[in-house]
């Protein structure tokens, strides 16, 4: 279930004064089962990009191939939509049914699942997002913000996609809920072998969970690599309005001040170990 994107361009409102060249020369191959974070400023093209992955937007030029299916072909596009689930920003705004069960069942019902299959899909996805069955008969609007968001994600999972795209799934949540959602997504990738494409402004999340980071700027992918590779470009990232995680910056600066520290530190745990090592060595010498 890989995604192949070749020479993709996208222009909003072409031939009008509001023409915006939103994607330029995008070439990517995303492997099946990988965890990719997409970072970039607002307006860098992230949302336009992910809407190409299930054909909500069709490229102005170039090709998007998902699992050997061409997004420009109408029949194949229907199949792609089953494979690629997109969780948009603030997905809880899209909840509308009377009960949690009905809401999660909406997608699979529309895809023509049998009643038995629908039931199974609902239970399975509810469990996958870490919610209990006692919520199924409740109104989704009586839940907390974090729970509503999980229900919305469950609604997408119930369609059993192979690729899960999430646009800022933790925005507006408190630190505990944020961490819980990030861990849940990570678990989905591990246990269900889903490919994850996570659009985020949270550099700490990108550094901690993703295997690969795409950095977008003005419609282009300007950096593409592992978190260590991408965050080693601290200056370039700053120039395009992005930050590296604070501990990464800290260790970078310490290294310049003569500390013996690995090139790129991504997490607080790594930073702690590296700093302690430096100071202990010093004590030995003394």
């Amino acid at each position: 279930m890989s995604i192949k994107i070749t020479n993709v361009e996208y222009i909003y409102s072409p031939n009008t004064p509001f023409e915006v060249h939103a994607l330029k020369d995008i070439n990517l191959h995303i492997d099946s089962g990988s965890y990719v974070a997409v970072i970039g400023q607002t307006g860098s093209g992230k949302s336009t990009f992910i809407q190409h992955l299930n054909g909500l937007i069709l490229p102005t030029a170039g090709q998007v191939i998902v699992n050997n299916l061409d997004i420009k072909d109408k029949k194949q596009r229907r199949k792609i939509r089953k494979e690629v689930g997109i969780v948009f920003q603030y997905p809880e705004h899209q909840l509308f049914e009377e009960t949690v069960f009905k809401d999660i069942a909406f997608g699979p019902t529309n895809l023509g699942f049998s009643e038995e299959q629908i039931k199974e899909a609902v239970f399975k996805s509810l469990k996958a997002v870490g919610l209990g069955e006692e919520l199924l008969d409740k109104s989704p609007f009586d839940l907390s913000g974090g729970q509503m968001r999980r229900v919305a994600i469950a609604g997408v999972l119930a369609m059993e996609p192979k690729i899960l795209v999430l646009d800022e799934p933790t925005a507006g949540l408190d630190p505990r809920a944020r961490q819980a959602i990030l861990k849940m997504i990570y678990r989905l990738q591990r246990t269900r072998k889903l490919s994850i494409i996570l659009v985020t402004h949270d550099m700490i999340a990108a550094a901690s969970f993703a295997e690969r980071i795409l950095v977008m700027h003005q419609g282009r992918v300007v950096l593409d690599g592992s978190p260590s590779e991408v965050f080693s470009h601290a200056d370039e990232l700053r120039k395009i309005g992005l930050a590296v995680p604070p501990v990464t910056l800290l260790c970078h600066n310490l290294k310049q001040s003569g500390f013996d520290i690995p090139d790129v530190i991504l997490t607080a745990e790594q930073a702690l170990a590296a700093i302690l090592k430096n100071l202990e060595v010093k004590e030995h010498v003394n």
Binding site: P246, L250, A271, L272, I275
Partner: peptide, 29 residues
């Protein structure tokens, strides 16, 4: 209370737990 310290303040705290003498109020890189 389910609040997370800024990453640097959290690290400062852990370093203190490991016995480093860091002044209070280290919040920035």
């Amino acid at each position: 209370y389910h609040l997370a310290l800024p990453q640097i303040a959290g690290l400062a705290d852990k370093l203190r737990e490991c016995g480093l003498k860091l002044e209070p109020g280290i919040l920035t890189v």
